[in-house]
């Protein structure tokens, strides 16, 4: 087990380097540059721009820029934003907790609502309530999330007036509920379907028949024997889902004006702030890798037939 974890952690290094490089190259390939973006529409002296770029090291070949960035990163330096002169680390430290909260809310919503709906439908497969869930999840999967976000915003904020249409800079937990529900709704659909299928399948298994034959009460048959087995694929999915939710937060944060990492990536993209984009994306990649490692370990706990060596 220890060796497995060590191996997995070591495997993260090439993934980490690869993903930073990829994002770095993508930023480089984009037209425009941060210094020009800084100037906006104003006409500026070419020589001046060149001088600023030289000072920032932006005139170096791409591989050298990347090397300098990595070197800085290993010293804990995420770089500095050109326009605001703020260290990228500070930007992340401000924005990240907000996104983490949004993601966790969305995750909790996905887990609680998704699993309950899936169990509810799976216990009575092919009945009215099962079909109802199928239609609902199909709807959630096929409607793009920004459409859902606008619908929710329009309905709950503008029509009903239950919430403010946009989230304040403080991003109180209460304000994050609606964005979290919207963010989690796609995953909710997948979790509900996966749970439903898993429950319906395990319900037909021989050991469930044994559990009934043992004279166990219904809630124990379902709560212990059925759920322990049915949750195995769901937990696997949920692990990869945390990373997906963080990625999805970029769009949701934009619509609800939540000032988390998504919002900052968006701003940074517009002003071509390479180090900010690379820093944040890398962080999301790390969260993704770590959460999938945790889930793989959890998988071994849930299913004793799995052994990692």
């Amino acid at each position: 087990m220890g060796r497995y974890v060590a191996r997995r952690l070591l495997q993260m290094i090439p993934v980490f380097i690869g993903s930073t490089l990829l994002v770095f190259l993508m930023m480089y390939a984009l037209p425009g540059d941060p210094v020009r973006a800084l100037a906006g529409e104003q006409a500026v002296d070419q020589a001046q721009i060149a001088q600023v770029k030289k000072d920032l090291g932006l005139d170096l070949p791409i591989w050298q820029q990347y090397w300098n960035y990595l070197a800085g990163l290993f010293q804990g330096d995420f770089g500095t934003q050109i326009a605001t002169q703020r260290p990228v680390a500070d930007v992340i430290a401000d924005a990240f907790p907000i996104t983490v909260r949004l993601t966790l809310f969305a995750f909790a919503f996905t887990v609680i609502a998704g699993i309950s709906m899936g169990v509810f439908a799976g216990l009575k497969a092919d009945t009215f309530r099962d079909r109802g869930l199928l239609v609902l999840t199909l709807l959630l999967i096929s409607v793009p999330s920004f459409v859902l976000a606008f619908l929710a915003q329009y309905f709950f904020a503008h029509e009903l007036g239950w919430v403010e249409p946009v989230v304040s800079a403080a991003a109180d937990s209460q304000e994050l509920i609606l964005p979290a529900v919207v963010l989690g709704s796609l995953s909710l659909a997948y979790v509900a379907r996966l749970t439903r299928t898993s429950v319906a399948e395990n319900l037909r298994s021989d050991y469930m028949r044994t559990a009934v034959a043992k004279g166990l009460p219904k809630r124990r048959i379902i709560g212990v024997h059925l759920m322990r087995n049915s949750m195995i694929p769901v937990v696997t999915f949920l692990g990869t889902d945390i990373g997906t939710l963080m990625g999805g937060a970029v769009v949701t944060e934009g619509i609800f004006n939540v000032q988390g990492v998504g919002y900052n990536v968006f701003q940074a993209l517009k002003s071509r702030e390479g180090s900010t984009v690379v820093g944040i994306v890398t962080l999301i990649v790390v969260v993704y890798l770590v959460s999938s490692l945790i889930v793989d370990l959890l998988y071994a706990v849930l299913d004793p037939r799995i052994r990692y060596a």
């Binding site: 021989d206 050991y207 044994t210 322990r228 087995n229 299913d303 037939r305």
Partner: peptide, 14 residues
């Protein structure tokens, strides 16, 4: 009751 296939009749995760 005792079932034919003990492997599938016992709960694999308990």
């Amino acid at each position: 009751m005792i079932f034919q296939d003990a492997l599938s009749s016992l709960n694999p995760v308990l």
